[in-house]
Design a binder for these strands. Structure first.
Lengths: 226, 226
DNA sequence: CGTAAAATTGATCTGCTTCAACAAAGGTGG
DNA sequence: CCACCTTTGTTGAAGCAGATCAATTTTACG
């Protein structure tokens, strides 16, 4: 990445904001002139049904870019909330325009959009077609791969601020059933999650168990971007 | 839209290809230098599980643009197939580059991407949280709104090339259950679908029934684009 | 008019939900 | 540093939405 681009990036992410856990960053229906970017912590996009049921549709981890679409968008079609305490940056609209004028940055933004879309397609497959245990296993495989790429995995172990209700709302299952599936995965020796610490003994076994294929994350294309 | 842009568009969509129904346009894992664009007919994006289960993750109707991301992408993370007979155009990579240089066209492409993403989020909510009958009703509401905008709905009636298995693979339900839900919707007087013809008597009632809100389709932003 | 694709029906089964209670952790203020 | 309280996780029991299997009817179409 050219130095000038780096400098632009550094400048953009200057006013860093601290946000506590479990707090909405923006709600469905609101409009926004900013793109939100998570610098540290874990956040999620979600949608609600009138009856209160919640579906988490994406997680935002450090290194993930957010929507780049605000310049066409009139109102948010979903909400964003922190899961853990986060460091957040609000990038004004014109900054995005600046970024898209730099080929290297534009390419990175396109890549991020591509991965987001690919991930949602995979989630649809996951929620629509996989049985509960595999569904949950698949989610953890994805976190493992993404967090590994982010360099925060040691020995198949990483910390993840999710509780079982979050997992339920992500996979379209009930909390109770998620709990039982996690126990099953523990008994199978595939995955341990105890109080925000995830431990995957045999990554390959877990991935084979749920048919995980990381192609949708397009990590190969990442090299030509970063 | 400027005349020059129109001319560019007309030029791009020149070599039109006819494809019969139920045929793959491109398969997961393949790479592609082209973006496919559906001019006429109905197509879908889908993913398969090793055991054969299929999840449809998007429909492509005339007027919808396809992936604009090929220039970063190494391999397809999903397949695309026709549902009905289609007229298809393959747009080479450099043509996309040309288009993104025109502000009006670039804006339209961004809008299309935004809507695709918003739609997938809504589908996740649909598949993950809504009960079967509402889930199916919601799908038909979406088709109604999109096809209405495309100007092919008369009197709440439109033709839709889907069979019940497609609906099942879209909603994550079994074919048998889809059949029973459709009967239920018929009995409720909300929706009739007989052999590729969909008839919605009371649109408002159907939308209220499943809590449909078209905000995720961002039709308001369409005006500033088209 | 015959055949293949799609829709429909019935019966049975099960994966997951719901409800409701209880246990364990972890954070907090005294 | 302990007692309390809240959040999170765990367990059991009962019920049901939706799956599966398998046959039959209807429709489309060559």
């Amino acid at each position: 990445m050219p130095d000038a681009d780096r400098r632009l990036l550094d400048e953009i992410i200057l006013p860093i904001r601290d946000v506590t856990a479990r707090r909405d960053l923006i709600r469905e229906g609101q409009s926004s002139d900013n793109v939100r970017l998570i610098i540290q912590g874990l956040a999620c996009r979600y949608k609600n049904l009138p009856n209160g049921r919640r579906q988490i549709v994406a997680y935002l981890i450090p290194g993930d870019f957010c929507d780049l679409h605000v310049h066409v968008l009139k109102a948010m079609d979903h909400s964003i909330a922190t899961v853990s305490a986060c460091k957040v940056v609000d990038i004004p609209r014109y900054r995005i325009a600046e970024m898209t004028e730099r080929p290297a940055l534009a390419r990175a933004l396109w890549w991020a959009t591509l991965v987001d879309e690919g991930t949602m397609r995979e989630w649809l497959l996951n929620v629509g077609q996989r049985p509960a245990v595999e569904r949950i296993a698949h989610l953890f495989c994805e976190f493992h791969v993404k967090l590994q790429a982010a360099g925060v995995v040691t020995n198949g172990t990483f910390s993840l601020a999710l509780n079982q209700e979050d997992i339920a709302d992500t996979t379209g299952l009930s909390m109770v059933h998620v709990n039982r599936c996690l126990q099953q995965l523990r008994e199978l020796g595939l995955l341990k999650m105890r109080y925000k610490i995830v431990e995957i003994g045999d990554t390959v076994a877990l991935m084979r168990f749920c048919g995980f294929n990381s192609n949708y994350l397009h990590l190969d294309a990442l090299e030509s971007v970063a």
